[in-house]
Design a protein around this nucleic acid. Sequence first.
DNA 1: CACGACTGTGGTGACGTTGCCACACGGCTG
DNA 2: CAGCCGTGTGGCAACGTCACCACAGTCGTG
Lengths: 344, 344
Amino acid sequence: MTIEPRRRTPQPVTLADIAREAGTSQSTASRALSGRGYVAADVRERLLAAADRLGYVPDASAQTLKQKTSRVVGVVVSDLDNPFYGGLAAGVEQTLREADYRMMLVGDNSESAEETTAVRTFLAMRTPGVILTPVGSDATSLLHRRGIPVVEVDRQIATVPCDAVVIDNVRGARVAVEHLLALGHRRIALLVVDTDWTSDVGRLAGYHDAHAVAGVPVDESLVLRIPFHDAAAESRIADLLDRGRPTAIFAANNLLAEQAWRVLRARGLTLPTDISLVGFDDVQWTEMVSPGITTVAQPTIELGRRAAALLIRRIGDPAAPTALELLQPDLVVRGSTGPAPAAS
Amino acid sequence: MTIEPRRRTPQPVTLADIAREAGTSQSTASRALSGRGYVAADVRERLLAAADRLGYVPDASAQTLKQKTSRVVGVVVSDLDNPFYGGLAAGVEQTLREADYRMMLVGDNSESAEETTAVRTFLAMRTPGVILTPVGSDATSLLHRRGIPVVEVDRQIATVPCDAVVIDNVRGARVAVEHLLALGHRRIALLVVDTDWTSDVGRLAGYHDAHAVAGVPVDESLVLRIPFHDAAAESRIADLLDRGRPTAIFAANNLLAEQAWRVLRARGLTLPTDISLVGFDDVQWTEMVSPGITTVAQPTIELGRRAAALLIRRIGDPAAPTALELLQPDLVVRGSTGPAPAAS
DNA sequence: CACGACTGTGGTGACGTTGCCACACGGCTG
DNA sequence: CAGCCGTGTGGCAACGTCACCACAGTCGTG
């Protein structure tokens, strides 16, 4: 009794199969299908036909092994479920795909260790380049040491030279706060994530800048630095309302803006008569709620597109000077901001 | 004059380097680092130390080539920028990462051709499995023929046996429409995408079911089938309002719900007194607008998690019976639905 | 007509990893 | 003490592709 071979997975067609089918050598088959080197027209025809007939798909790992580089770009974002990062990834993916690259997407949870793990995987895959919303500088250094180009998006952390695409956080925050100051607000609370990322540092700086230019002193008790994933964020915001008596709030990212908005709603406060609110990053809900939220809009998808384009350029020309693209945010004024109530 | 070698990119460390460093053979180094086969404890120590010292990273392409399979799962979604697909991808990625798989993410734009292109890439990469929100059946068939497991998420299209994770669309739509019927609505408009996907077909069926059970005849002129990416969607919805005089709208996905909501807002109609609105898929804004939108909530991230888990199981046991996971959606009642106005 | 340039083809050896095989040793059992 | 099993090790071939090389014609030109 013989055992049924049970060829569950038919093994893939290789160049050797094509060559045999068309009666040529492997070398010729390789040249015909890759388009590099001399092949007689009729022979090429025959090989292409054979490849098509057998359903040939070149083995990417063999190519990568041989060429010591792949067409798969590594991308790390903090949290795919956040629409900001989703849009970013969408932009990256589109541009990569147009240039015949693929995207390997990994989420760290804003944790440096996971970022480094992801990067190690990219190293193993002989990735031609990496795009990341950086959490720490180790990951980028590691890649740099191995000669793999990196593009940082949204924030800059690298301690080694590398390309970056960020928005002008200082200016974005300054414009937002100037808008509030112009409306007569003097007690403007700032909600900002407690990191040393350039995005948050920049927004904090913009807040101070605007005050300085206007000659309005900053009451530091109105600046609330909130750690990542702080479960108590909303209660801390509520506290600030009681303690600081701000007439306006500038929330320096979309999550903080949402939390602030919820606190205000829970308190039954009316925008903008009781208090004004400005957010950062124009996600969908800011326009749909009533009144709409005045916010600093970032070109999210474009951020991703630029990052991918920059990486592709860098892969093509490793010696090009380090580039920093500074995209300009845009203050979108809606109903959530209004004149400061007269001091009582 | 000799030419400077210019070693821009230091070539990666290989097993051979480690072996030389530790004074063993490659085979032993391989066994020590992969953990398969016999290695004396002290030798292993020495090899691990050497690997660590030299910064050894195993070459994934060489491994894939040798083992004829990789740890990179292919994932295709329609549109990463849509938070529904973003959440889905987030769930998939989390679960894959926990099981030491990676995610290769590609967007088709709901176009069958791009889906097939993506799948061909996966084939080339010797992907151990693929997860997709299917657009056509060709892609899945292609994979099936090559013996690569596929999990369909959100919709079922495959003409070959394959695992799937979907929500109970029929029931979701039925519950939504029953809710409206119970409130006294008799002219309920349905906005649905004009596809033959199970998701949309199911929601359409649920709409009819609910009517049938309640003994309410369906006015087919109230059923608006809108093609994908239809730029005129909003004006068609507005038309329907004029022509059909519905007292309630059931929008069968998050995009249509948003468009309907915009049309209603532009008209100055008040929810729920002028008209009621039910959506499908609980995205962020539905809860934040005022009044909140009654909607059929899907466990988006969970959908992704289950799909990944199912795929991992299938990779481990190719002979397991085909599985279909049917997740239950949940009607979240908010302020956008109210009693039908008395007939005038 | 000799020589080189151009076209076309096949052989061969890497790329880095893994797994099979052969071998070698010590301790155990029959 | 012969045989065998359990350890431990190194040699070697193979995965599929590509690039280099050798070679073989066919031109055209000096």
